[in-house]
């Protein structure tokens, strides 16, 4: 297992609980439904910002922790961080994630245009679509590593 593969695996098992936890938290805040749209949007944006900051901090910790863990497992003090194959797999997975998020974005636009979605629901859908595409990118990257691509 390469260092990039290990970091992807750690990211996958860390992000999933983070986003799932946020979704559970949102579900517990059903009281938002009674708020004015602008107030509800502000409340969601504040909560989402906290999650984004947490995700960034987590990414930094994972970057450092992953390197240390890899050094402990392999005994290599100066491992190659990522090479051309890692970057190619990164590009392929990001492309898939971009397409997935693009489709979700169009679906949200259609939902707003035809009145199927309220602004808050649209914003939430976009946020979770972004999170899901991020997780999808890591999952695809891991699958490509496992397939030996």
């Amino acid at each position: 297992m390469s260092q990039s593969e290990l970091r992807s695996l750690i990211a996958l098992i860390t992000w999933l609980p983070l986003y799932t936890g946020f979704a559970i938290y949102l579900k517990s805040q059903i009281a938002w439904a009674g708020l004015e749209t602008s107030e509800a949007l502000r409340s969601f944006a504040q909560a989402a910002l906290v999650v984004v900051v947490l995700a960034i901090l987590l990414a930094i910790v994972l970057e450092i922790g992953g390197s240390i863990l890899y050094a402990i497992i392999t005994g290599e003090s100066q491992p190659v961080l990522s090479d051309e194959r890692d970057r190619l797999l990164e590009l392929k997975s990001m492309q898939a994630a971009f397409i997935a998020f693009g489709l979700a974005f169009i679906a949200v636009l259609a939902g707003l245009a035809f009145g199927w979605l309220q602004p808050l629901a649209a914003l939430m859908t976009l946020f979770f679509a972004l999170a899901a595409s991020q997780v999808l990118a890591v999952a695809i990257k891991l699958a490509l590593y496992r397939l030996g691509a």
Binding site: V80, D83, L88
Partner: peptide
Amino acid sequence: LAEAVGVTRQTIVAIENAKYAPS
């Protein structure tokens, strides 16, 4: 070999098995 050319061992494995065409 991987260390000599600056890539990971997994990349050398993939090249040897013709799963990846190197730059």
